[in-house]
Design a protein around this nucleic acid. Structure first.
Lengths: 166, 166
DNA sequence: TTGTACTTTCAGAAAAAACTGAAACGTAAG
DNA sequence: CTTACGTTTCAGTTTTTTCTGAAAGTACAA
């Protein structure tokens, strides 16, 4: 397998993976391309390599920046913008956790709070409220566990964690 | 807020959450409905409550069973099949981890193995191989961490983990 | 064997998500 | 001010995903 082919395979695989992670296919492919690229790339470079339109490239690059997975880089003298990926994978995972926690877990907790106030003391209502309380408890625990995880650093994660819990 | 309304809100919210977790909206709504239901429900019950077609109900129920999130329950004397949700949320999360690890992480590791054999010792190829090795290392660690996590039991998760890592 | 009650399948329809390309916009240099 | 170079936006189109409904399949009982 040669380099071109290898890159291609990786970009495809990373794209497929991303599409299950709240990151659409193209967004993940752009990230993959940047991950493999030692130098910063311009929007044009990305459009060419992935054969996508300017609009698509621009929108997905912005989204990656919002997710904190890609950074803008301005070269002195150049008017064009260049982009580099966050290459520390633990950092990438952390960013995804942070973003998704905010976008998913927190709204869920809000709904749970609201619906825990259903009226009625019949068995069905009591049952419902009990289930809601349980889910709320679990969510809060998940929330704070993720917070702690995100504060932990890379070395701790890859090194100590495993030994500690065995 | 009354019970009907509360259930409705919960089903909507759980559906939205699921759609970001590799579980489609309807599948997650069926799971939500079953979670709230003290008794097992038939396909018909589910079709009515969620206003979906028989085909859709059937396909999503099967998928939930495949994911290990819902169980079939046969009532003696009844020909119809009934369904109950796995109600232990830690069990639910574990199942999702197991399934997604298999469907996503493992194929990724396979691709990484393949592409780590790119030929060429020019700087670009070396750079590429270095990146691939790093990603592979990270993936393996994630893989075994998740394995360990999945083996741990619910009480450990909700109780000890937090204290341990603080 | 036939009827009945239920489940499964799947082609086509509908809905949702992603992409394109061109026009509008912003900004620095001339 | 105007041109040149680059970025952003978004209406319309394409692609992908999900859903429907009817037909086919299965299994038990009479």
């Amino acid at each position: 397998m040669d380099l071109i082919e290898g890159k291609e395979r990786f970009i495809q695989a990373w794209g497929a993976l991303g599409s299950n992670w709240g990151v659409n296919r193209t967004m993940a492919q752009i990230h993959a391309l940047l991950l493999l690229s030692p130098e910063a790339l311009s929007a044009e470079n990305i459009m060419e390599e992935l054969k996508i339109s300017r609009g698509n490239a621009n929108m997905n690059i912005r989204a990656l920046i919002d997710w904190g997975l890609v950074y803008k880089e301005l070269k002195p003298g150049e008017r064009k913008e260049f982009f580099v990926a966050e290459k520390d994978l633990w950092e990438v995972v952390k960013q995804i956790i942070i973003q998704r926690k905010k976008k998913e877990l927190e709204p869920m907790v809000k709904v749970l709070d609201e619906i825990s106030s259903v009226e009625g003391d019949d068995p069905a209502s009591e049952e419902f409220k009990k289930m809601v309380r349980e889910i709320k408890l679990f969510s809060s625990k998940a929330d704070s566990t993720l917070d702690t995880l995100v504060k932990a650093d890379s070395n701790w994660f890859v090194g100590t964690f495993l030994k500690m819990i065995r």
